[in-house]
Design a protein around this nucleic acid. Structure first.
Lengths: 195, 195
DNA sequence: CCTACCGATCGGTAGG
DNA sequence: CCTACCGATCGGTAGG
């Protein structure tokens, strides 16, 4: 069935090109004609593969949300300390942001352009993820592993630091991914100032 | 001169409404009709106060850039340690982000929609600011005040943490601005893990 | 997968 | 500051 196979593959090509365009120009500023040109099609032909512009955004947002939540589930299942859980989570975030920067960035920045009811559904998933992340921070504070900081401040500082990796980190640059993980975890866990 | 006075004031109202809309919906998704409605005008009447949609974005971006650079200059002039300079800078960032969240956010997220030559000009100012920020980090590492981390990693982690304040911090919420500064500086300077 | 085309909306202008 | 309107572009459809 080469036809079915090609159709599947072409849809994937479209989704990946869209993620890159959404990252670079934003969802509203990306036209279906831009996208068509990026995958060597006429705009109207896109609709043989996808139902609408927003369907693409939905797929990017919810695929990534599921990805993060399934990683969270795995980490919660392990019987490890809050410190190890935070380290695992941060490593997962960094890895995803460096391996698949286009998709993650669209997910981070463009979800607000979803329309209802998807917007509410997405926010619910996101809130769920944040609450489970925050629970680990609170646990670490309770056990005395972490400094007694406001858990909301810590949560969003951690997430924000990693959220903008795509903006400045280039895997081909001077810093390798291993060094990045080392220095970023070092900074986030132990701070800037030497004791 | 009530006429001149009103005109001036109306332009300011338009700029502030635009900053809020750009923050909430993004620059491309904000139409001049949206903006007109927000300030109780017809779209065409906006053009008595401003030359174009992009002029508004330019003003927001360059006003903020100048604001940050002048704060940097002030801090550089003081003969203080790298630690104090970083603290001053972070406090300035947090204060601006909490006091004037709409304008700062537009500046952070929407500058990429500038067209040339403003885009290049803006990037140059931004790079200049980042380099001077990074120089302070490097100085602190050299004097032994800071941990020997990669200065690029530290720079962007700091900037990113504060960049997303607008997204989750509400001055009317449970955390006061003083507490926010305390906990955020505590986290960024001393890290999450208790020694 | 294309050509041809739709109604809606865009930023902006003319003219008063 | 408004009404009326412009050409360009948008997401998407019809029909083959």
């Amino acid at each position: 069935m080469p036809t079915v196979k090609n159709k599947k593959s072409k849809k994937q090509v479209i989704l990946e090109a869209a993620a890159r365009l959404f990252r670079d120009k934003g969802y509203p500023a990306t036209s279906m004609r831009d996208l068509a040109q990026a995958v060597d099609l006429k705009a109207s032909s896109l609709y043989n593969h996808i139902a609408s512009k927003e369907e693409i955004l939905q797929k990017i947002c919810f695929d990534n949300a599921r990805h993060f939540l399934s990683a969270m589930k795995k980490i919660e299942k392990k019987d490890s300390s809050a410190t190890d859980r935070i380290k695992d989570l941060l490593r997962f975030h960094i890895q995803l942001a460096t391996e698949d920067p286009t998709s993650v960035t669209s997910f981070n920045d463009e979800w607000r352009h979803l329309s209802e009811p998807q917007l509410t559904e997405f926010k619910t998933l996101r809130k769920d993820y944040e609450n489970r992340f925050k629970a680990i921070i609170k646990e670490g504070i309770k056990t005395g592993e972490f400094n007694a900081l406001n858990s909301t401040v810590v949560l969003y500082s951690l997430l924000s630091s990693i959220r903008w990796l795509y903006d400045w980190y280039h895997p081909d640059g001077k810093i390798t991914t291993e060094q990045l993980v080392d220095h970023l975890l070092g900074f986030l866990l132990y701070g800037l100032i030497k004791d």
